[in-house]
Structures are given as C-alpha cells and as structure tokens.
C-alpha cells in the first residue's frame, strides 16, 4: 500500500512523466513532419507557387536542390527537429523570412487572449458550479443549468458573429476589428469565455454532485458536520478532477482561438495559421501544431502529476 508523502514514489512518477513527455513530443514532431511530407504537392513547387514564380523544370530542380529535398526522410526530419530545438522553425514559403519571429509574435498575442478567456471562465464557472451543486434541484440551480446549457450549445463563431452584430453594428459599443487595445479584447474574450464557461459549469457541477453523493458526505451530514466543512471536503477531493477538466478544455480553447482570431483579426497564432493555410505556407502550419501541441502535452502531463499528488489513492 502506498503511503502518504512517499516522496520516493512521487519522484519516480515525476521522472517517468518527464521521460513520457519527451517521448510524446518526439512522436508529435515526427507525425507533424510526416503529415507535411505526405501532404499533396511538392514543397519546392508549393514554394514557387506561393511566391508566384513561373514554374519551369529547371527552376523546380534548382529549388529542390537548394531545399535539400533529395536527401532521405530521416535526415531531413532530424535537421528540422534540431532546428526547432534551437528555435529555428524554418523559412516561410511565402516571403523567405524566418518563421520563428512570426510564430513568437503570434503566440504572445494568443496567450494574452487565451489566458484572459481562461481566467474569466474559471472566475465565473467555479463558484457557480459549487453553488449550483449544493442547491441541486432548486430554482437557482435550474437557472445556472439553463444558462450553462445554452452557453455549451453555442459554437463560439456563432456567439462572436451575434455579439458583433448586436454590440458593434447595432449599438456601436465596440470596434469590429481587434486592434490590440484592451477594449478590442472584450469581444474575443467574451466569445471564447461564454461557451467555455458553459462547459466548465456543466462538468464541474457534475463533479461536485458526484462528490456530494459520496458516502463520506452522507457520513459527515449524519454527524451533523456543517455544510461549510462539507464544502471544504468536496473542494479538496475534486481538485484532481477539476484540474483534468481544465487541462482538457485548453485544447478546445486553442481551437476556438483560431476561429475567434480569424473573425476579429486578432494577430495571434490562429490568424497566422489560417492565413498560412490559405497560402499553403507549410512551415508556419507545422510550427503552429508543434507549439500548440507542446503546450497541451506539457500542461496535461502536469495535471496528471498533480492528480497523483492530490489523490494519493491513485
């Protein structure tokens, strides 16, 4: 039986997780590279087309040689991977400029948008979920449930279009295009937060209700323990699950940010990748998946470890 505070066990777990994370990152990069490798069309050709150069056989051959496309897959993969580790994400097909600075600038903007949305969603949903769970079946619970239900059923592109229509065009409260100012952040953040809060409230509420149905809660209540302490206990015991819920929602948030950034022209990674998809600028798309994937992997490995710490039974 595992003992509490078994630091040796914990350290082993952490080291395992680190090894696992590295392995996952390597596989992620391999799959991303393979995806681009088998993508329809030849990079040299794509590059020339996206730059608008007329394609002749000689030009194509020269371009292929210059890009080193004749070398084996693994050599090219290795080169690309070590480039990324050094922070070199390759050269854009579109304008021959390094991709890394563009990605960095986009990531910065995306982090602002996503973090703001995540914080807002958590601030709204966590207390509401607890409140609602404790008042299960009452009017206030129903109101929270209906609201979270509607939020959960709204695609964020729809919310943003509707918000834009009502607030920008009808009432002229906000600028239509996000220019980076704090006011222009409001609509994108709302568009991301509304559906995310809906999902959070639903998932957290059901987690809290599960906890409230545990034997120990009945036991506490039968001993006349105050609800205040019951709340302390369910909050403590649900932490692991809640972190997992949040970690998984970050993935949805990343996808949502692509849509929202495109709609509001927020100069983040999402808008960058959509522009790059339209111009078939593969190095940017690869960089995007690598960055988002890495953040997601690391974050969820962290929540996994904290789950072990928080629930020693696992």
């Amino acid at each position: 039986m595992k003992q509490p505070g078994d630091t040796k066990f914990l350290i082993t777990t952490v080291f395992k997780k680190i090894a696992e994370t590295v392995l996952l990152l390597i596989i992620l990069s391999l799959l991303v590279f393979a995806l681009m490798y088998i993508a329809p069309g030849d990079p040299a050709e794509k590059r020339l087309t996206s730059q608008g150069t007329a394609i002749t056989k000689e030009v194509l051959e020269a371009e292929r040689a210059r890009l080193g496309l004749m070398r084996p897959f693994l050599v090219r993969y290795g080169e690309w991977l070590f480039g990324i580790i050094r922070g070199d994400f390759g050269i854009s097909f579109k304008d021959d400029m390094p991709v890394a600075p563009k990605l960095a600038a986009g990531l910065h903007k995306t982090l602002i948008l996503s973090t703001a949305s995540l914080i807002l969603s958590l601030l709204v949903s966590y207390p509401l979920a607890i409140w609602s769970a404790f008042r299960k079946g009452r009017v206030s619970d129903h109101i929270v449930r209906v609201l979270s239900f509607i939020g959960n059923s709204m695609p964020n592109f729809l919310i943003s279009v509707l918000l834009m229509y009502v607030l920008c065009i009808h009432f002229r409260l906000f600028p239509v295009i996000a220019d980076g100012s704090p006011t222009s952040l409001i609509l994108p953040v709302l568009s991301l937060s509304i559906p995310m809060s809906g999902r959070f409230i639903r998932q957290m509420r059901s987690e809290f209700i599960d906890q409230l149905n545990e034997d120990y809660v009945t036991g506490m209540r039968m001993r006349g323990v105050k609800e205040r302490y019951v709340a302390v206990n369910i909050i403590r015991n649900s932490l692991g699950h809640i972190l997992t819920i949040v970690g998984l929602q970050v993935g949805t948030l990343m996808g949502g940010s692509v849509v929202i950034e495109t709609i509001f022209r927020w100069p983040g990674l999402g808008k960058l990748v959509m522009d790059s998809i339209n111009s078939r600028d593969y190095p940017v798309i690869m960089g995007f998946v690598i960055i988002m994937g890495t953040i997601y992997i690391v974050l969820n490995q962290l929540t996994d470890v904290s789950y072990h710490v928080l629930d020693p039974r696992v």
């Binding site: 036991g219 506490m220 001993r223 020693p312």
Partner: peptide, 11 residues
C-alpha cells in the same frame, strides 16, 4: 449506519 467504514473522507 450499516457500514460506517466509508463515512469519513478517505483522502
């Protein structure tokens, strides 16, 4: 209760 073993928070 019939089986009071689970009546405290296990963790």
């Amino acid at each position: 209760p019939q089986n009071p073993a689970g009546s405290f928070n296990p963790i």
